[in-house]
């Protein structure tokens, strides 16, 4: 259930043209909407990108975000998938302190989270984790006790479950 200032996920199919991201971010800035994360990548169709926004606000605000996104000429489709049954994932890389005494403990934690160690060096490890925002948050929190140097997150991408592709939000 959505409460008043929940996080909401919106995806948008947009034309892959110079300046599109600028138009979108300009709209968010101008209207005073908060983006907590933004991910962009190619879609299944040549020339079109898909963006995933995680937006904070009440349902009315999020509806206005979707309407204003849709108003941009280069935005083709906008779907609010926060209320639906969705898969959402984020990738993070975490550089964490690791010496002989802590390395195995970290490896155990990484295992529990089904994360991976992708780089080992004198004194540090890089951990790669995939999951929804909560899972990534939890792992990063646990790793903090060892001393985290650097965290890099891609931002959430999301897709609704099942075969049906959801209807365009505003009309």
């Amino acid at each position: 259930m959505t409460t008043t200032t929940d996080k909401h996920t919106i995806t948008a199919l947009v034309e892959d043209q110079p300046g599109v991201l600028n138009r979108i971010s300009s709209m968010f800035r101008r209207r005073g909407y908060n983006i907590s994360s933004l991910a962009v990548g190619q879609s299944e169709t040549d020339g079109l990108s898909r963006m995933t926004f995680v937006v904070e606000g009440d349902p009315e605000t999020v509806e206005m975000v979707a309407k204003n996104l849709h108003k941009l000429v280069e935005v083709i489709k906008v779907v609010n998938i926060s209320s639906g049954n969705t898969v959402s994932r984020e990738l993070a890389l975490v550089r964490v302190n690791a010496d002989v005494t802590t390395r195995s403990e970290i490896m155990q934690i990484v295992d529990i989270f089904r994360a991976k160690i992708v780089d080992v060096s004198q004194g540090t490890l890089i951990v790669e984790v995939t999951g929804d925002e909560n899972k990534v948050d939890s792992l990063v929190d646990l790793l903090r006790t060892f001393g985290v140097h650097e965290v890099m997150r891609t931002g959430t991408i999301a897709m609704s479950r099942g075969v049906s592709y959801e209807e365009d939000t505003p009309g």
Partner: peptide, 16 residues
């Protein structure tokens, strides 16, 4: 313009 509807005032019957 759908983005004008519900922007300032809650609306009972919106018509785009």
């Amino acid at each position: 313009d759908p983005s004008e509807i519900g922007k300032i005032i809650p609306v009972d019957v919106p018509i785009v």
